[in-house]
Design a protein around this nucleic acid. Structure first.
Lengths: 170, 170
DNA sequence: GCCTTCATGTAATCAGTTACATGATTGC
DNA sequence: GCAATCATGTAACTGATTACATGAAGGC
């Protein structure tokens, strides 16, 4: 049920069409809550039915601009402050670790080295977008930077763990 | 498609019934790949249809013991060494961070402090189970400890981040 | 005889992914 | 005229969650 709140959150910054939202999504929230175009349009429809957003304008090519309603804002705030985050935390990367005894030590070490490398790449990538967002002063940028810092720290820790784990084998 | 491999992985340590697997699951893999009882039984059925596991014995109360087949072991090894882990990484905890501008700074700080506390509790919990698993010498325990270390490091980093983030506001 | 544990499943629903379908408008 | 971009949606499928149904066997 969180895509709904992701959409409400984006609309809390101002009205937008599904198409607009998708673009913002891809460069911001997609990292913490991926969603597809079909999902987004479907969610906007449901949100409108529930009265949490409304069609604020219609443009060319059937464009529908949505705006968050008071009920929507209330729901967003309620979700932020009163709903306990659930930690799902599925990781097939870690799942594999449990079964590394099923391949030979060489391959197990190789697997962990690969993970260290992949994480190092992600780290570089995060650092590169950090440069981009440094300047933004809008809400999403300000808090986006705090979320980015999370990614940075987590990736660093993961890289170090993978390097340590590789050492543990043999 | 990873529950399938979680099941294969557990069966690679020896034959077991769905009921047996569920118990092991809850204290080990559930942390990296949660699954429900219904899901598990359904998966065993599909796995058997696909010839990756077979019913190796039948016991009282309709108990069916499953054993991994050669094809199953091959599939498991292939998955470990040749299939790229996908990083899904959905976090509604982080999603909220993006929208913290929608509540007042007091509440935003409160939210982050709460996350720090929750993470601290999880950290304690992980440390407590670390004591339990310290002694095991079976494959799952050995690699389970490496996975546990991951949880430990990640939780530590997350706690520190949450404390830092709280400081950033106001 | 009764409680606990063992043991397996079905059904309904929801969330997410992939692929496809369709067409209007704008800029060149 | 044509390509790129804008724009919205449907359909089929897979995976996951919740709730319910059912009953045998073993220990006391």
């Amino acid at each position: 049920m969180s895509l709904r709140h992701a959409v409400l959150g984006l609309l809390s910054e101002g009205p937008a069409s599904g198409y607009d939202l998708m673009k913002v999504f891809d460069v911001s929230l997609a990292n913490v809550w991926p969603a597809t175009q079909s999902q987004l349009y479907a969610e906007l429809g449901k949100l409108a039915d529930a009265g949490l957003v409304s069609v604020s304008a219609e443009g060319p090519r059937g464009r529908k601009e949505y705006a968050i309603t008071d009920a929507g804002l209330a729901e967003l705030r309620h979700w932020i402050t009163e709903v306990e985050p659930v930690r799902a935390a599925r990781s097939d990367m870690l799942l594999r670790v449990f079964f590394l005894a099923q391949v030979d030590p060489q391959q197990a070490k190789e697997y962990l080295r690969q993970q260290a490398e992949i994480t190092a790449k992600r780290l570089e990538h995060i650092e590169s977008i950090q440069g981009f967002v440094e300047s933004g002063t809008d809400n999403l940028s300000v808090y986006g930077r705090i979320a980015l810092e999370y990614g940075l720290r987590m990736a660093t820790t993961q890289r170090q763990w993978a390097e340590w784990a590789e050492e543990q084998i043999r």
